[in-house]
Design a protein around this nucleic acid. Sequence first.
DNA 1: TGATTTCAAGACCGATTGGTCTAGTATGTC
DNA 2: GACATACTAGACCAATCGGTCTTGAAATCA
Lengths: 200, 200
Amino acid sequence: MPAQVPRGRPRSFDTEAAVERAMDVFWSRGYHATALPDLLQATKLSRGSLYAAFGDKHSLFLRALDRYIADALTRMDGELAARKDPVDGLRTLLAGYVDRTSGASGRRGCLLVATAMELAGRDTDVDLRIRRFFEAMEVRMAGALSRARDAGKLADGVEPSSAARILVCFVEGLRVVGKTGTTPSASQAVADALIERFIK
Amino acid sequence: MPAQVPRGRPRSFDTEAAVERAMDVFWSRGYHATALPDLLQATKLSRGSLYAAFGDKHSLFLRALDRYIADALTRMDGELAARKDPVDGLRTLLAGYVDRTSGASGRRGCLLVATAMELAGRDTDVDLRIRRFFEAMEVRMAGALSRARDAGKLADGVEPSSAARILVCFVEGLRVVGKTGTTPSASQAVADALIERFIK
DNA sequence: TGATTTCAAGACCGATTGGTCTAGTATGTC
DNA sequence: GACATACTAGACCAATCGGTCTTGAAATCA
């Protein structure tokens, strides 16, 4: 069956761009502290259009969160790609976290961590997404560490699975501590010190 | 000058107990999501009494946060006391975090981390407290690690200052990941794996 | 042109927000 | 007893919350 031609005026705004702008607001203020007028201003949509396109605040938030998670996983997949050296990949991944958790970027925080602390345990939709993200992150880390071990680059006694979870906790902890505005150089030194414990 | 004897009816409720009950509510729900009726119910105070005793919601929140921080630092001082073996102290400290970040306790989260993500950067009173807490925690960790090094128990190449920050990030990351309800045994294994990288 | 759809602007809704104030009562000191 | 203070209960306030609805203009089709 041929695609039905819509009859009236076509949609005149970019839905994904609106989600991205909404994501920025939730990212900066958190879920509860973000009010409808904030979202209307950021998306440049009218109340009616926003509700027609996204349903309600909660649904729009979930779309923003999904977008944030997809971006993060895509970035990780690039950094830890199988064709690259796994240790280099882990180093660049950590360097990226150092950058995003230092200074002004650090103060801005992380939508995912903020959401986990604000809503997890009280919002099943959020619960599912947060849990899956940490699992996905850990799987990717463990994969890179396994490849590093197979290449003989891991220090003795380092198990990829537990080292992966250590790294997940470390970078998420960086996000928390980074809210106080740490310096990039100090964070980078600490990240170096940690990875140094894992490789030969 | 002798202490002035108050004239009228004496205060009939325990202020600190009220702060503690308020802390429990903020802890479970976060700052924005906690409404006045929640605080009234938890403290069993009337609106008038609560405002007379604490000023406003924000001031009460700061008192609750201060209480939470004081409790945490007191606990750490006990675990890392100078008379105790520093490595044992670090192990029990980590075991405590494993316990508090697993299962139902983990899902409940951490008032300090939640506050950091929700309010830091937008509330100078909170900023100051969060920053000081992480500094104080790092100082205590670094002290224990220094004593461990002096006792010859630290692995080669481990610097107390950077290891201290690694541990701070790790335990705060545990709090974040713990919101998904991790199992105690898995978390304990990971904590063991981390500390194993630092000691001889 | 007429039908159809989308949009912005904003009135409007009930519920809830943090916060103040009053009335009446209880409990203490002098 | 008089006086002073602490308390509860709840009315009350303006502001804001998330969400719905109406109006009228703009944009596309047949």
